[in-house]
Each structure stands twice: as structure tokens, then as C-alpha cells.
């Protein structure tokens, strides 16, 4: 951006713009990853003209359960760490 010679306020504005675009881009790649994973899990037959009721609800649930699982495992690790810290206070 330096060699484009924008003035300071414009630079600030572009910085904000790029941060927003980057966030949007991260959102997009999360959706891409979850789509790939949930497709493998939920769409098992030959693709038809529409999703069956089971496939559609599996796809929707897949996202929520993936996030629940990730929150659960993060919490489990934190709890284990806390227990370890409580039992060996001198090493931390």
C-alpha cells in the first residue's frame, strides 16, 4: 500500500476495509471447510434433484454439533489444565 501514495485518512480507511474483507474471507473459508466435512458426513447416496429431509437436517445439525464438539473439547482441555495446576501449584 505504501507505494500507492494514499494520504493518511485514506490509508486508515483502507486498513479498516481490508480488515473487514479479511474477516469476511475467514468466514468464507470456515463455511467452505464445514461444507466439505458435512457433505461427506450427510450426503451418502447419489445426489438427487433435492436433498431428502434427513440430509437437509443432517447438514444443518452438522454445523451446530461441530461447534459444540469444538467448544466441549476446548473446555475439557482447560479443565484438565486447571486440575493439573491445582495439584502441582509449585511448577506453575
Amino acid at each position: 500500500m505504501d507505494n500507492l501514495n494514499f494520504d493518511e485518512p485514506t490509508r486508515k480507511e483502507l486498513q479498516t476495509f481490508i480488515e473487514r474483507e479479511q474477516a469476511q474471507s475467514r468466514y468464507n473459508s470456515t463455511v467452505q471447510n464445514m461444507t466439505s466435512m458435512c457433505w461427506d458426513k450427510c450426503v451418502t447416496g447419489t445426489p438427487g434433484n433435492s436433498f431428502s429431509r434427513g440430509e437437509a437436517s443432517c447438514l444443518a445439525n452438522c454445523v451446530d454439533r461441530f461447534l459444540d464438539a469444538s467448544i466441549f473439547m476446548t473446555k475439557t482441555i482447560q479443565d484438565q489444565r486447571a486440575r493439573l495446576q491445582a495439584s502441582q501449584p509449585e511448577t506453575f
Binding site: 463455511v31 464445514m34 461444507t35 458435512c38 450427510c42 447438514l59 444443518a60 452438522c62 454445523v63
Partner: peptide
């Protein structure tokens, strides 16, 4: 078509 639909279902749930 189904893959694009899956993408939009996942995006909506997320």
C-alpha cells in the same frame, strides 16, 4: 446443484 445448496445450508446455520 446439491453442493451449492449444501454450502448455503451450512452458511445459514453458521
Amino acid at each position: 446443484d446439491r453442493y451449492m445448496e449444501a454450502f448455503s445450508i451450512v452458511s445459514r446455520s453458521y
